[in-house]
């Protein structure tokens, strides 16, 4: 009777130890309360096919600006809702005024990671001044 009890205690300790060792590192953040910079938030349209990734790494908002050189710059704020590090790929796709896709290295897939509870920005810039629209794809790592 004593052995199973000991085994269960050992098992529980082992599981707890694993949990601690595998690391749930979260991020504490501080910044100025009255932000001077005003972000131009844009309404976005989302297609979520990977609900699992969306639950873990959520899209908080999207803002854009036009550089003085006439290129559209887009920034996406992401937040990791979990307490563990998440890895994913993201890829910006750009479209001209006729809805045609414009591809070059600025549309390459970029590996990214985000710590637990961290808020992070990713950004890209349009490959040509003629680009008007964009979309961003997120793929969860294996």
């Amino acid at each position: 009777m004593k052995t199973p009890k000991l085994l269960s205690i050992f098992g529980f300790s082992f599981a707890a130890g694993l949990l601690v060792l595998t690391g749930c590192t979260t991020v504490n953040t501080v910044g100025n309360a009255q932000m001077e910079g005003q972000r131009t938030m844009i309404s976005d349209q989302r297609v979520i096919s990977d609900a699992s990734l969306n639950r873990k790494v959520a899209i908080v908002g999207v803002n854009s600006t036009m550089t003085s050189g006439g290129l559209l710059k887009v920034q996406v704020e992401l937040e990791n809702h979990t307490r563990s590090l998440q890895r994913f790929l993201y890829k910006f796709e750009w479209f001209d005024a006729n809805g045609m896709q414009v591809n070059n290295i600025l549309s390459a897939s970029v590996p990214e990671q985000i710590e637990g509870k961290e808020s992070k920005f990713i950004y890209s810039i349009a490959p040509t001044p003629g680009c008007r629209d964009f979309r961003v794809k997120f793929i969860e790592a294996n």
Binding site: T67, S68, L71, I105, L106, S109, V110, Y123, S124, I125
Partner: peptide
């Protein structure tokens, strides 16, 4: 190489004001 080129290109193109202009 693709990641480095992507980062370098967008960093240079998003400079505002941009020396290339």
């Amino acid at each position: 190489f693709a990641t480095a080129a992507n980062d370098a290109s967008r960093n240079l193109l998003s400079m505002d004001p941009n020396p290339l202009d």
